[in-house]
Write a protein that binds this DNA or RNA. Structure first.
Lengths: 204, 204
DNA sequence: AAGTCAACCAAACAAGTGCTTGGTAGGCTA
DNA sequence: TAGCCTACCAAGCACTTGTTTGGTTGACTT
């Protein structure tokens, strides 16, 4: 059972512990002593691995965002229908919440505070990029005739973005509902609404 | 122009300033010196008006919640259709964001942290109360046949709650869209979805 | 003129904060 | 055996935090 994961293991292990605490208590409200305690070492020892507390979140967030937006770009570039793209983008997001709940929570809760520092300027850029992705998807959807043309695209984008990501506040991996089930339900509501269909008989 | 608003004026003025800062920077991240600076006094002078920093948020949140839930109760008790009740509850919520953006933001951002203290136990109670209200509305809606019966009520509740309240992060009173316009758009999406209707010709 | 009161100042304190410094234990390699 | 390197400890420093204390100011009342 000797795990020879070479170098970087202890570092990433500490990063994981820090991410969990940041997600649970918030960045500002998590002290380096909290992280050290949870790791079984003294606070000063953390500075053997990291420059600062800030550089820890930095690494956590930037790594995650890189992965996430690469996935979005794939969806954008894929040659499928407008509706299918939107569905994929939504499922992708819930998948990210499932795989990286800590990272999503940190971004969701502390991006506002962190964005005030020059170092985290890329957070605002990523935000703009996310908006760009969704506006493209929605505009394509309207143009293709699969989305209502009386929608305010900007508002719709905000609703989708907020609703999807805020799920990180209550979703727990391994809980009652899988992330794919949640994505299904969400897409049903988003695309077709919660009210009973006018006529049309789908199976029972 | 001599305003003789009697006693309590300075106090509530300070509370308003504090609410703005709490909403903008978060409770933990706002120092008593921040509040004092914004008020043009020294930090120690705040303790002539308030017991502690905690008691400030306490007063801000509890006052707001009392008002909000009284309004929900009115909707619940009103003798109108299930769909109309849901619409009213949604518009009511967006109205609260419009009238009390700071209070909503504080609750949205810091309820998790504050909920850890005994003093703020009522936050969890209010949360349960909110859930109760919406579960009732949604159950009534399904029973009355105005909502799809294949919905997961619990998930639907979470989606609605999150989407409505998270709007406080971008909504600005007096901005491009009024809160009633936003409520309209949201209800359209929520009830009928964003995809084009199967047949039915509504006006253009 | 004397007293009362709300609102505030000036200065400090103890606890908690991120971070630094110099040192050490133990495994690995030459 | 010697040297090296990763991971850590022990102690502290400078600063920020919420809060306390005793005193001051000016308007108002009696």
């Amino acid at each position: 059972m000797t795990d020879e994961v070479a170098t970087g293991t202890r570092r990433s292990q500490l990063l994981g512990i820090a991410a969990g605490l940041f997600a649970q208590k918030g960045f500002k409200n998590t002290t380096v002593r909290d992280i050290a305690d949870a790791s079984g070492i003294l606070s000063g020892s953390l500075y053997h691995h990291f420059d600062s507390k800030e550089s820890m979140v930095d690494e956590i967030l930037s790594t995650f965002q890189e992965e996430l937006f690469a996935a979005y770009d794939e969806v954008l570039a894929s040659k499928i229908g407008a509706r299918a793209k939107i569905e994929r983008a939504v499922r992708l997001s819930f998948g990210a919440i499932d795989e990286h709940p800590h990272e999503v929570a940190i971004f969701q809760n502390d991006a506002g505070y962190l964005g005030g520092f020059e170092r985290f300027g890329y957070l605002a850029e990523r935000n703009a990029q996310s908006r760009s992705v969704w506006m493209t998807l929605l505009t394509e959807g309207v143009a293709a005739g699969v989305l209502r043309h009386d929608l305010d695209i900007e508002l719709t984008y905000r609703f989708i973005r907020d609703t999807v990501w805020v799920a990180v506040k209550w979703y727990r991996p391994g809980g009652k509902h899988s992330h794919t089930e949640i994505a299904d339900q969400y897409l049903t509501i988003l695309l077709d609404g919660i009210s009973t269909p006018p006529n049309l008989d789908e199976r029972s």
